[in-house]
Write a protein that binds this DNA or RNA. Structure first.
Length: 490
RNA sequence: CGGGGCGUAGCGUAGCCCGGUAUCGCGCCUGCUUUGGGAGCAGGAGGUCGCCGGUUCGAAUCCGGCCGCCCCGACCA
């Protein structure tokens, strides 16, 4: 009886756990079209908070939002050779409109480089028109074979930044800057530590010069690529005649970058923090940070306690200690006829970071009883100074989540692996990140993928590299060109 | 597209082998009693048994075809 109320545990079946959690916490639901999903208010609320935090950072770094259309002429995709090769198989094509076949089919954007650089070309004459720093929030469509809620669906929501610069170095700095913005967001908001680094040739974006990424480790020890930033070089500028007249009077092609993160991050949030009781949301992204459950027996008690609960909510919401616009987000669950225990389970499933219980005993003592979602630690908090105490506790939860996730990642990261046999053992067993040498040859990368399903997640940035660089290639034993991170990935 | 599994009430299922118009749990509605970790009792609503066809007096059940979904592979934010 109680059993079917419980989730499949992570240990039993991680993938079933994830699916059940997403459905039961009402983050998302399957839509009638295979591979696409509805994002429900609980999930969309998290996405909205992600959007707001990121959008602020994009603005701070000088970007402006704009919107480019969903439909792109099919011919546009074909103008950049590797881009078309990379995306052609997963592009949805519109062939009819207004009841008639179209003269030229339209593609539904899988990403917007082509249309955006076409427009940039129209707007750019002089170096004085550069840089162009644009972001758009949009949906994109990629016809994937195998889909999973939030992690890979036919349609997803994201932002794509697109910039044009006069020089390679400026574009490079932009791509690196935005990678840093992503990393900061993922750590400070999602409390999801990431390794930043550069993608290998085979893993980079179709049409890019270089791709950088943020790689997170999920609780099943698989890697999740949570965000990418590309230095596109002049590839798209050449394909779309994006030129400008430089100071010296010569005409030159612009240098572009593009960078994006998507609703996939919601899946990352789930798989980073949640437990067998349900979702765990980092406070900064939680649509509801605090839920108050009134406890009572009689109608008389109910009246007093529910009133007190609403008073606490009002006090918390009125507190401006985090700034006038960043108020504590509080809900009172005053449903009658649902027992407190049932409410606890429900809000735990939904991932509310902090629960406050207020009953007659608490009123007598002038305190409230708190329960943390992440550690399930419980403690009484005096009513006096409650907003400050609650805000502090939420901050503690936020930082503890990041610390716990980082500790888990490090515990499952394997350095100084030099033997391929040992590597296979790790990949067949616990998995995780393996730091090892690589000769830089795509052939050895392909061999590992073929034999173990692990791929090179990135060539990590210097701060993530091992104190002593590996000397030999994990696969061939030849001298290593780079230290890379191997992992199975989503 | 290959391999595996599954379609019965909102969800999870029994029944199928051995044909007779459907079982149980959760959820939902009403009432009363409850309420500090998933409440109890009583009453009630809810079903084209995935779809089409065949066999049969009679099909959830047997036969044929089709569709859909999930999991595992080839592709990917």
């Amino acid at each position: 009886m109680a059993d079917d109320k419980k989730l499949t545990t992570r240990a039993e079946d991680f993938s079933a756990w994830y699916n059940e959690l997403v459905l039961r916490a009402e983050l998302a639901d399957y839509s009638p079209v295979k591979g696409s999903m509805v994002i429900r208010p609980n999930g969309y609320g998290i996405w909205e908070r992600m959007q707001r935090a990121l959008d602020d950072r994009f603005k701070e770094t000088g970007h402006q939002n704009a919107y480019f259309p969903l439909f792109i002429p099919q011919s546009f995709l074909q103008k950049e050779a590797s881009h078309v090769e990379g995306f052609a198989p997963e592009v949805a094509v519109v062939t009819h409109g207004g009841g008639k076949p179209l003269e030229e089919p339209l593609i539904v954007r899988p990403t917007s480089e082509t249309i955006i650089y076409h427009m940039f070309a129209k707007w750019t004459q002089s170096y004085r028109d550069l840089p162009i720093l644009i972001n758009q929030w949009a949906n994109v469509v990629r016809w994937e074979m195998r889909t999973r809620l939030f992690l890979r669906t036919l349609e997803f929501l994201w932002q794509e930044g697109h910039t044009a610069h006069a020089t390679h170095d400026e574009a490079e700095a932009e791509a690196r800057q935005m990678l840093g913005v992503y990393r900061g967001f993922m750590e400070d908001w999602i409390a999801m530590p990431v390794v930043t680094g550069q993608k290998s040739e085979s893993e980079k974006f179709a049409g890019a010069l270089r791709t950088y990424s943020c790689e997170a480790m999920m609780q099943d020890n698989k890697a999740l690529q949570a965000g990418t930033s590309h230095n596109l070089g002049q590839n798209f500028a050449k394909a779309f005649d994006l030129t400008f007249q430089a100071e010296n009077g010569e005409t030159a092609h612009a240098w572009n970058t593009s960078w994006g993160v998507s609703t996939r991050m919601v899946g990352g949030l789930v798989m980073t923090h949640s437990d067998d009781n349900g979702l765990v949301t980092p406070p900064r992204l939680a649509p509801i940070e605090v839920v108050i459950v009134p406890i009572y027996k009689t109608d008389e008690e109910r009246g007093r306690v529910v009133e007190a609960a609403h008073k606490v909510k009002a006090d918390l919401g009125a507190w401006t200690g985090r700034g006038a616009t960043d108020r504590l987000r509080v809900k009172v669950d005053d449903r009658d006829g649902v027992k407190p225990g049932a409410k606890y389970y429900e809000w735990e499933l939904r991932g509310v970071p902090l629960r406050l219980e207020i009953g007659p005993k608490d009123l007598e003592k002038g305190s409230v009883f708190s329960a943390r979602r992440d550690t399930r630690a419980k403690a009484a908090i005096p009513m006096a100074g409650l907003p400050e105490a609650v805000a502090r506790l939420l901050e503690t939860i936020q930082t503890d989540l990041l610390a716990a996730a980082r500790a888990r990642r490090e515990a499952n990261s394997h350095r100084h692996v030099t033997s391929y046999a040992q590597f296979k053992e790790i990949m067949d067993g616990p998995g995780g990140f393996v730091y090892a040498g690589w000769n830089g040859d795509p052939a050895s990368e392909a061999k590992v993928k073929e034999e173990t399903k692990a791929t090179i997640r990135c060539i990590p940035d210097p701060e993530f590299r091992s104190a002593e660089a590996p000397r030999t290639c994990l696969v061939t034993g030849e001298p290593a060109k780079h230290e890379v991170i191997w992992a199975k990935a989503y």
